[in-house]
């Protein structure tokens, strides 16, 4: 049993707002408790060892996507990572790519908003709904298929795990391509493939992906990113011909 171990949590720390602060690894030692997650461990560190430690948790239930970080080098959600599944030495670092707020806290929000505005991730329709009347029908299976892709929580893990974006900062990433796949599937969105091609039919979009598929490996929601990107690429190739 892992109960009662001493955990050594090595955290990459840096506060860009403090003059003269330098990136460094700091190690915190704490007693492991049963059922301890990184959410509990980090809050204990903040409460008892260093109250300046910055990190983000909101739902602490794996739903909201706030707490993605590099856990032993791999992007993941800290809140639902049980310490018992990790070695006694745990290394934590902020997600790369995103603007650093401080320590483990990064500004995923503005990145995601930029992506959303660029890809116009909303229903495009000329119709104004008459909300007094019965809703338009949809096949139950189609609604489920759309929801499957709608489950993305914009945690940023796929971006942190992406090889392409390391070389091409303007790449929309799996999160962006999955959104396009989601709206493409949705009959309420009237955009044609030709219009979607304008958004993702280049190296910043679906043709930039090198198919390393780190995104699919680290997605905490296990979204079908591999098949969606491949499918989207085939569809966009047909338009580009």
């Amino acid at each position: 049993m892992s109960e009662g171990r001493t955990l050594h949590v090595h955290i990459l720390r840096f506060d860009p707002h403090l003059k003269d602060d330098k990136p460094r690894i700091e190690t915190f030692e704490l007693r492991e408790a049963p059922g301890m997650t990184l959410y509990i461990a980090l809050n204990d560190i903040r409460k008892y060892l260093d109250n300046s430690l910055k990190f983000d948790f909101v739902c602490r239930a794996g739903i909201c996507g706030s707490c993605a970080m590099l856990i032993n080098g791999r992007p993941g959600l800290a809140c639902r990572t049980l310490t018992s599944k990790l070695d006694a030495h745990i290394s934590l670092a902020p997600l790369p790519v995103f603007e650093l707020i401080g320590d483990l806290s990064v500004h995923t929000g503005n990145w995601m908003r930029g992506m959303s505005e660029r890809l116009e991730t909303w229903i495009h329709t000329q119709k104004a709904p008459d909300i007094d009347r019965m809703e338009e029908r949809m096949e139950p299976e189609l609604a489920e298929a759309i929801y499957e892709l709608d489950r993305c929580i914009e945690c940023g893990c796929c971006i942190a795990g992406c090889g392409t974006i390391q070389m091409r900062e303007s790449f929309v990433g799996a999160v962006g391509l999955n959104k396009i796949a989601r709206y493409r599937l949705d009959p309420r969105d009237e955009r044609s493939d030709a219009q979607l091609y304008q958004l993702i039919g280049d190296e910043d979009g679906v043709f930039g992906c090198m198919s390393l598929l780190g995104c699919a490996d680290v997605c905490p929601k296990e979204l079908p990113l591999q098949s969606q990107i491949a499918y989207l690429r085939r569809k966009m190739v047909q338009i580009g011909k």
Partner: peptide
């Protein structure tokens, strides 16, 4: 409330449907 849910349906919520 029925208007709210129908508006959200038009805005893209994939509500589960009757089969």
């Amino acid at each position: 409330a029925p208007k709210a849910i129908r508006e959200l349906a038009a805005w893209g919520v994939p509500w589960s449907r009757v089969k």
